[in-house]
Design a protein around this nucleic acid. Structure first.
Lengths: 302, 302
DNA sequence: TTTATTATCAACTATTCATTGATAATCTGA
DNA sequence: TCAGATTATCAATGAATAGTTGATAATAAA
């Protein structure tokens, strides 16, 4: 016996006045109504109704139980319908973790338009380039760049991320434009410290090759800084186009060795489960999908 | 799935922090705990917990549900333990219907001692000589005198009720003391209007016999009045000893034709059901049983 | 890496559920 | 007063569910 159903049955019987009418209203057989009430009485070890075949009369215990059971049922209904709304309407606080450079440049319009479309959703955006544990730190979604290794998490591809080698025209004029990957060993590399490039990429081999003088490289864990440095003529940077694209378009940077461009990575939205996903999360994933275009607008520099 | 059990399981999981500890506390298997929580999520169509094999994290929906579910469970526990107390301790209002003459003379000590023994029980005593419908009128117990015809009600015999013919010594001196039932037709009968005597009783035949002059009888629906009238010498009354007993003992009345005394009737406590009887009712029945003695104290007139 | 812990899945049996038809008790209207 | 209608409950049956055990995958700690 489901005690909530039994309570609801008893309350309906009291409100309707007879077992049969209660059965009609609840869409069940009178026999079942009778059984439920009996079982409830059995469970409580209290007689709730004095019943003849014609009339029902509440006992003192029944009166008291009816009153409070009605309240409890209302509470449960409230509670469940509140959860239902949460599911249906996309409400609540959406906690997002995102990479620093990408977020500062490209997230604002996405979030702004998403909130216009989903007024019930609040957003808490935490910028972080380390790999956060979304469960442990309570994130609904983490945006990540790279080739994802498998895990128990779900990853939805949001946009491609191209990496291009680039330097300022002035730098190239002074140091020469590399025509072959081998030439890179003679250049100053503006290196991103978290970069985890696939070793099979030709460009990577030359940038990491032991023949180079690593002591003269510039290293940062922030891509923006490296791109700004490249613009200022400090060397050659291998950075995503979502950072360098606009500078390239404006002519402040020039793509180097385009024919050796590494395989593109991707921006992923990572979340915990596929089933019973909160509506706010589902909506955000769907909203992000294709938002940046394909190819994304920051790649329109050529 | 019992939703209340499922709610309780979920709340315990959240409070204990792991499924396994919750299972220990609830005395069930971890598999079952897992199943319950899953079914609850299924039912609500909301993910309540983000779980890895090592740690649990509440979702936003889960946080809100946990808070309210805990409240609901408390309400239910309160409600049920209140009913339990009602059952265990004998509390509440006990509504009793009783015959007028009996109650005015003999109920006070019973009720008073019962309340001393059961301080939680209030008493509402309604005096009435008609046959009340205890369910319809909301009585817990009706005291009735007579030979009860069968019904769906339960009747517990509390005390024997003897009926004796009696008259004042002065009346008998003036009109003669009947030695045989036939003599009764020459006397004035003080008749109780609700009297439903078994027609097989010898005395009854003579009192109702057509040879008598009924026009000279006195009729009342109150036995006290008839007994008082008998004391005043108005005639012969057939009344219960619980009314006439004290007057007989004091010599104000004299028993007539004792060898023709009708079969005794009884005082019954009538109530609706035997099962799941409210504790206040059960206690009262038990308390009444034998309270008046056997034979009852009012029969000690001989 | 190995071991221990944890949640979950899968399969299986005992139990419970919900239905149907039958019955007893009451009420209603002639 | 008596048949017909209504009502609650009982009993029996097949369907669905509950709760168990053993196995598995994932993670944390040693």
């Amino acid at each position: 016996m489901d005690r909530i159903d039994a309570m609801r049955t008893f309350v309906t019987v009291v409100n309707e006045g007879t077992f049969t009418r209660a059965a009609d209203r609840l869409g069940m057989s009178p026999q079942l109504v009778s059984k439920y009430v009996s079982q409830l009485e059995q469970h409580l070890a209290v007689r709730l109704l004095n019943r003849t075949t014609r009339k029902l009369h509440l006992t003192e215990a029944g009166t008291s139980y009816h009153l409070r059971a009605q309240q409890v049922l209302n509470d449960i209904d409230d509670m469940e319908s509140e959860l239902g709304d949460l599911q249906r309407e996309a409400r609540g606080m959406l906690r997002i973790s995102a990479p620093v450079s990408f977020a500062t440049r490209h997230m604002a319009p996405l979030l702004s338009e998403f909130q216009s479309a989903n007024p019930g959703v609040g957003i808490d955006l935490q910028l972080n380039d380390r790999k956060v544990d979304i469960l442990e730190e309570g994130f609904d979604i983490a945006l990540r760049i790279g080739h994802l290794k498998s895990s128990s998490l779900i990853a939805k591809r949001i946009a491609p991320v191209r990496l291009v080698l680039c330097a300022s025209p002035a730098y190239l004029k002074e140091h020469g434009t590399p025509q072959r990957p081998e030439n890179l060993r003679n250049h100053r590399y503006l290196r991103y410290s978290y970069m985890a490039l696939d070793a099979s990429q030709a460009v990577h081999r030359w940038l990491q090759s032991s023949g180079r003088d690593h002591g003269s490289d510039m290293v940062s864990n922030n891509g923006d800084v490296l791109v700004e440095a490249a613009i200022a003529g400090a060397g050659i940077a291998l950075q995503p186009t979502f950072i360098s694209g606009s500078a390239i378009k404006e002519g402040k940077l020039q793509v180097v060795l385009p024919e050796y461009e590494p395989e593109p990575m991707a921006l992923y939205a990572v979340y915990a489960h596929r089933q019973l996903l909160a509506s706010k999360v589902r909506s955000f994933i769907a909203f992000s999908d294709g938002f940046f275009g394909d190819p994304p607008y920051w790649d329109h520099f050529e």
